[in-house]
Nucleic acid binder design. Sequence first.
DNA 1: CGTAAAACCCGAACAGTGTTAGATAATCCA
DNA 2: TGGATTATCTAACACTGTTCGGGTTTTACG
Lengths: 216, 216
Amino acid sequence: MTDDTTPRERRAKRTRKAILDTAMQLIVEKGPDKLSLREVARRIDYSPAGLYEYFGSKDELVEAACSEADRRLGIYLNGVDPALPPGDYLVELGLAYVRFARENPEHFLFLFGNREANFEHMLPLEDDFQTDEDWGKHDPNFALLISAVQRAIDADVIQTRAGFDTLEIAYTVWALAHGMASLQARYMPHLRLNYAATDRHAMRIMIAGLGHTLPE
Amino acid sequence: MTDDTTPRERRAKRTRKAILDTAMQLIVEKGPDKLSLREVARRIDYSPAGLYEYFGSKDELVEAACSEADRRLGIYLNGVDPALPPGDYLVELGLAYVRFARENPEHFLFLFGNREANFEHMLPLEDDFQTDEDWGKHDPNFALLISAVQRAIDADVIQTRAGFDTLEIAYTVWALAHGMASLQARYMPHLRLNYAATDRHAMRIMIAGLGHTLPE
DNA sequence: CGTAAAACCCGAACAGTGTTAGATAATCCA
DNA sequence: TGGATTATCTAACACTGTTCGGGTTTTACG
């Protein structure tokens, strides 16, 4: 089970994880911009310079924390039962997305509240061949959404039309889920409403609406 | 027309505006976290300490920039013709919201990408009486949305149901618009699709869906 | 083994930051 | 004009990210 890693590699991996963990904790506590390398070093009994053996810069560390948050979001999404009917599956996918934001608001806000840093690692620089959904090649979460939408289309649960195909539909349901997630992550304590029920209702309205054919 | 202000007050207002303007420009250029008071001072030929006559701290300056961005968003929203039919008005309101984000992505991201700083000024601290929509008392933009939704309900363009009333409906359409806005502000160059057309279609689906009565 | 090389970690320094206190210059009002 | 008030600056403090050079430990190899 244990990889054929040398003790050195195992140690390095462990301290790297320690750095990343305290960094994420610090980010949750005070926000990403207030993250201090020196504070991280202090908490794990390292010298500030010592961190540079594991992360080339503060930005690189933040980027790693970003990827980690993205990975955790993926856990929520993959927890949805893929055996559900295509329509229900899309609904639950959106609700899982929102639930991640509700249960980890700091992670969510930080994941999507970062200037450009994010998604540079999952997007090849300057690739013009973004015709369809080779996005998924670099972002497994987005790939999951695309395939779910495609399945709903194939099952005739969702209707396409000219200029409103798989990509546009995926964007639409992502937008709804992302909007609810963002609003909750920010204004949860202020806006008093039954989020779980409201989200499900909203999601159902959207999926159902994508199944009808709108006039004009 | 000119207020009965003393020359002193006019000067103060002017330099205050100068500080705020260069701060916003700097935020657009490098992001809010990279904003440097010293750089602001440098650009308007002031000493760093001089700024503290006008803004008590960096956070206060960022907060002011936030309010300014919120005000500009309000200009977009109030630009929608209120004589439109209630349904169309809601659609156009959402599209104006998204257009603001598309045309001023940095302002939008910074407006909603700030840890708690934002909206502390429009929310009385610790007010438990958030029963309905006295939010609007403090956020005119939200008030506009609420009244638009209420009008659509009164005109029977939108249907309420138990647990899904004005506030929940407003939250839902806000979420959709906010999601599209956020995604575009972040991934505009990467996701290649006709945003204007897609957004309008998505918005119409949602509003139309809110008019039907969903089973179960 | 023993030794060279690589990996690891640290102390000190540099340039930059937000913020404050005290001194100085500019403005207003009598 | 003088005197009081306001506006601004200089200097400093306590931070920050980052780099450089030198020790110390661990690995790899003959």
